[in-house]
Design a protein around this nucleic acid. Structure first.
Lengths: 350, 350
DNA sequence: GTCTATTTTGTAACCGTTTTCAAGTTGTGT
DNA sequence: ACACAACTTGAAAACGGTTACAAAATAGAC
């Protein structure tokens, strides 16, 4: 056995697409075509190639494919946290949709930190994502520049801002919050408190607060500073805030909340302090989580179709990438769900 | 202006690492080294290169890097669903750890479908992941073969099976369930029902059922078929199951549940049907979700450190990939958390 | 100052695909 | 039978990095 011989043999068939090509007796170009555009290759060749493919258990190497074709069929998503039912829902829905159209998803979390978000974006772009799904429109300036410089398509999800030059899809949180507050006002409440989520780097939370406030202002209602509390996304913090509000000398008869978790905390604390909801206190949530209708009393809240929202975000990007014309600003409807936790205020609000 | 001239100019500097090299007046090899192994390049060169890098806003192209280095610093994870707090927690924790060591995560969901899981695995391998995190050890035979054929490191998370040849990290669900059932038995219960999650393709659910059953058997207790119900992971289904159990002529005095969501459903339905927990009925959950201690009555349950579990899974793979020796089977401790939902059975069990 | 050992740098061949371009094949209308 | 269009196929050059290897520079020992 000659070395020259061995060398030439070793070199002839290694692995990957060339091995398939060799086995099927065709060129790599044909194998590639059979894989990406089956109609462009004759049935006989296609059959030979397919047979070679699963005889060899061939799995195409995506990075090589991406390198050569400059398309990854991968989207990136950056969410503040996955540890929030609404985001988990949205991501699940987005991912389900993407996999149905042959795309993959790179998911990262920023923890509401703009610098981290920028870093993640850089990472994702380096990974070759075709587009980016971002939560809201509260971003680092560098992020906008980065996206522009690299011509990366993106969409802001979970907000609706038709006046901005960036694409977005989501519900109008300000309007929805306005609706929630209007509901208790219509019931006759005049003394309304707010327990919101932390507004820092969170345009969704801010928009909701703005909506609450606008409704109060439009109806000539005061909002004493001590009636507005901001809390992190945990039951304990919500309870603490509720305890504070309910123990004020001069306390509200209704509380509108930035989300359902907060509302649940308020409900729990109200019960513990001997208040009856909705007799002594009305409570409105926001998001309509699964268990909200199971609570006692069941929670009046704003229903937001998260799954649909995130799926549409995916659709927008996939369509844009396919060169189709799509709507830049898409509004997703919310709805007020009236349940047991709201009622007219007590006659003598002691 | 000559075309030949233009052509040669165009060819000299295009983009990517070669553009950086050109601008810094060094070779691409040096740029690569400065990026991956800074100590291997002299300080002066490094400075020139770094300056060129951010002058050009250069972002390395990961697919090219993966192609040429055969390492992606990316792990894949396949979970049944992300729409389950426990998994969301775990993934969040895993991802946080991975990003702290410079790895990325590809996340996909299988919906408890073994074929889908196999397909996802194929997809992830094609993507060039360095390793795979799988939920449990209930997989398609083809998946094991696939992993072996492609020499892809993996770990089963959320279970503890020291006798199996595959690496795993998690709590011993069977033992934990046994502990939960033992708790109500110790309280004096003799009539114990089970509401479990669907066992199909879910070894975690099965292990828990097995643990419950073993505890009953060891104490000579019967489990009439109608006292064991399986339900999907929703409050509605759990409530329905509870309604059925509680309306049996001959009903249990205690119910052990496959997870906290189910337990919550049982609690709700018991209250609705006029049973007082724990006076008339004891309820035990499993998982110890955030809100479980806030419920009224607060829920006795098994605490499982999910975050830690998934992080350890990541650690295992990262270490293995770094060539370090690591423990194949790692057990993560559970603990029984006794709260208000369990008590001795009523004297005259009507 | 010379010689050797060590470190720093550059050259160029790969990694596994896609895709352009040209060549070969088949089909159609006259 | 011929010219021409439409379709299949293959050869080879990218894509943007890494890395083995060689060459050059530097340091250390005498």
């Amino acid at each position: 056995m000659r070395l020259t011989n061995a060398t030439s043999v070793k070199k002839s068939v290694k692995q990957g697409i060339r091995a398939v090509a060799a086995r099927a007796g065709v060129s790599t170009a044909s194998v590639s075509r059979a894989l990406n555009n089956p109609d462009a290759v004759s049935p006989s060749l296609r059959a030979r190639i397919e047979q070679a493919i699963d005889a060899l258990g061939y799995i195409p190497h995506a990075p090589a494919r991406i390198l050569s074709s400059r398309r990854s069929r991968t989207l990136g998503a950056i969410v503040p946290t996955i540890d929030n039912t609404m985001f988990a829902r949205g991501i699940a829905s987005l991912q389900h949709y993407l996999s149905s159209v042959g795309y993959m998803l790179f998911l990262t979390t920023s923890g509401y930190d703009l610098d981290v978000e920028l870093q993640q974006a850089r990472n994702l772009i380096s990974r070759g994502v075709d587009g980016l799904v971002l939560r809201g429109d509260c971003h680092h300036d560098g992020l906008r520049k980065l996206l522009a410089d690299n011509a990366v398509p993106f969409i802001n999800v979970g907000i609706y801002q038709p006046d901005r030059p960036y694409p977005c899809v989501g519900t109008d949180n300000e309007a929805a919050a306005h609706r929630a507050a209007a509901h208790v006002i219509e019931l006759g409440h005049r003394r309304i408190g707010i327990v919101s989520a932390l507004q820092r780097n969170n345009d969704r939370a801010s928009a909701r607060v703005a909506g609450f406030r606008r409704a109060l202002a439009e109806n000539g209602l005061e909002l004493p500073p001590q009636w507005h509390v901001e809390v992190p996304y945990t039951l304990d913090d919500a309870r603490e805030a509720a305890r504070y509000l309910l123990n004020l000398k001069d306390r509200p008869t209704a509380v509108v909340c930035g989300n359902d978790v907060i509302a649940y905390g308020v409900l729990l604390e109200a019960e513990r302090d001997g208040f009856s909801v909705p007799r002594d206190l009305s409570v409105v949530g926001f998001d309509d989580l699964d268990w909200s209708r199971h609570l006692r009393p069941s929670l009046t809240t704003i229903h937001v179709p998260t799954g649909e929202t995130w799926q549409r975000a995916g659709e927008y990007l996939v369509r844009s990438l396919a060169g189709e014309q799509t709507i830049m600003h898409r509004e997703v409807d919310f709805s007020l769900v009236v349940r047991e936790s709201t009622a007219p205020p007590p006659k003598s609000p002691k």
